[in-house]
């Protein structure tokens, strides 16, 4: 984690073909993480904290192996992943066209702005219990929560991206005889892509949150279900394994979208 975090900032600082020499900040980050893990490992052994409540890195590591080998891990992961990707795909299909419409039509925007903003700002997760009432305790209610969580960030950012497009550029294109479709495909889409990706990145965070909250609230299977199980059983080591899996998933997706965002932004002339 430390490596990724600091190297992102360091890129471009050293361009020469010199021997690689870690930056001070990288060393500090590594030391800091190492100290954390060492403290976590020795604190229960030395009786500073009750190991029953904190577990230990070594235990978590062993638990991770157990979980992967025989804990129906892949079954639960598949359920959660399905909920996540179904909800997210639905959100993409609905939100981008909606954002485009709202970004290009002022009347539509004025009409929908107040409820849209309210739902963007307010915690959509409060709708979870009513979704459960509607859709039951199975996967459908989680798909719906993911959908709602992911929807609004993408709509709002797509909308913003459409409106960001440079009017001068549009006028110039029109003066060369570009049709509305041309303007849309050649100017609006590439112009708003970075903004849309920003929306998708924010949506990933909310969607992961949605799956976990949905499953923790009520479920029969999934990562959140396992979190609940091991929480009540006080199996902190296994609980942490599942929590770390979710974190790693969110982290990986976020980094991927961010990388894509970075590439798209560099295409765009400032």
């Amino acid at each position: 984690m430390a490596m990724v975090a600091t190297s992102a900032r360091d890129t471009g600082k050293t361009g020469t073909a010199k021997a690689w020499r870690p930056a001070r900040s990288t060393i500090v980050s590594i030391v800091s993480v190492a100290v954390f893990f060492i403290l976590w490992q020795v604190a229960p052994d030395l009786g500073w904290v009750n190991g029953r409540f904190t577990s230990q890195p070594s235990q978590v590591f062993l638990a991770a192996i157990e979980v992967l080998l025989n804990d129906d891990f892949f079954y639960h992961a598949r359920i959660s992943l399905t909920e996540f990707f179904l909800g997210f795909a639905l959100a993409l299909v609905v939100s981008i066209p909606l954002g485009v419409l709202l970004g290009t039509s002022q009347t539509a925007r004025y009409l929908i702005d107040p409820p849209l903003m309210a739902l963007y700002i307010a915690p959509t997760l409060v709708l979870l219990p009513i979704l459960v009432v509607w859709l039951g305790i199975g996967m459908a209610s989680k798909v719906a929560v993911v959908f709602l969580g992911a929807l609004f960030p993408i709509v709002v950012n797509t909308m913003a991206g459409m409106r960001e497009a440079d009017p001068k550029l549009i006028r110039a294109a029109r003066s060369f005889g570009a049709s509305r479709l041309d303007v849309f495909v050649r100017i609006l889409v590439p112009g708003s892509l970075p903004s849309i990706l920003t929306g998708i990145r924010l949506a990933v965070g909310r969607a992961v949150l949605g799956v976990v909250v949905g499953e923790l609230f009520v479920s029969q299977a999934g990562i959140g279900y396992q979190l609940n199980t091991y929480g009540s059983a006080m199996r902190i080591d296994r609980l942490l394994v599942y929590a770390l899996v979710v974190s790693a998933f969110g982290y990986t997706l976020t980094v991927l979208v961010r990388a894509l965002e970075g590439r798209v932004r560099t295409w765009r002339p400032e």
């Binding site: 965070g205 992961v208 949150l209 976990v212 909250v213 923790l216 990562i223 959140g224 979190l227 929480g231 599942y242 929590a243 770390l244 979710v246 974190s247 790693a248 969110g250 982290y251 976020t254 980094v255």
Partner: peptide
């Protein structure tokens, strides 16, 4: 990147 509620 970690959804805090996973640690609930």
């Amino acid at each position: 990147s970690a959804p805090t509620v996973a640690f609930y």
